[in-house]
């Protein structure tokens, strides 16, 4: 299963933070991969509306999450504004966001002389 998270907008909107971060469960440890797949199942991802729906009137600085899941021949993209009400979708986004942060952390550690620090299964475009 391949997962992609993009995060747009927000008061602190930074080009380097919007991603997309891409995770291939094949590059993860068995437990970690199973955990992500479980989270996707819990959202009923391939059945849920694509969103994002209308944010409340007058709202501003809400981030928009764009989640794509590819599994076999299936692919679906779901969009959701914060705060994400559905706890299952929120948990999936938080899990992907945690992966994104780890990848970023590794990238920062890769500074001059620091040597390459990689993370299997994850990559952020330069």
């Amino acid at each position: 299963m391949r997962l992609k998270l993009k995060t747009e907008g927000g008061f602190a909107s930074f080009p380097g933070l919007q991603g997309p971060v891409e995770i291939d469960t094949e590059g993860l440890g068995e437990e970690e991969a199973a955990e992500l797949v479980r989270r996707v199942r819990e959202t009923r991802f391939f059945e849920r509306p694509e969103g994002p729906g209308e944010p409340p009137p007058g709202a501003a600085d809400l981030r928009l999450h764009v989640v794509t899941v590819e599994e076999g021949a299936r692919s679906r993209t779901v969009r959701a504004y914060e705060p994400v009400e559905d706890p299952a979708l929120r948990a999936l986004i938080e899990a992907l966001d945690a992966q994104a942060r780890e990848i970023r952390r590794a990238r920062r550690g890769r500074g001059p002389g620091g040597g390459p620090v990689g993370r299997p299964g994850g990559n952020v475009p330069p």
């Binding site: 927000g10 409340p56 007058g58 981030r63």
Partner: peptide, 24 residues
């Protein structure tokens, strides 16, 4: 609001502020 949440927003009724992630 949230865990390591790096944003602030107005939702049409209230102002919401995260703690930031402490790293960035």
């Amino acid at each position: 609001f949230g865990v390591d949440y790096a944003n602030a927003f107005w939702d049409g009724e209230r102002m919401v502020f995260g703690d930031g992630d402490g790293e960035l």
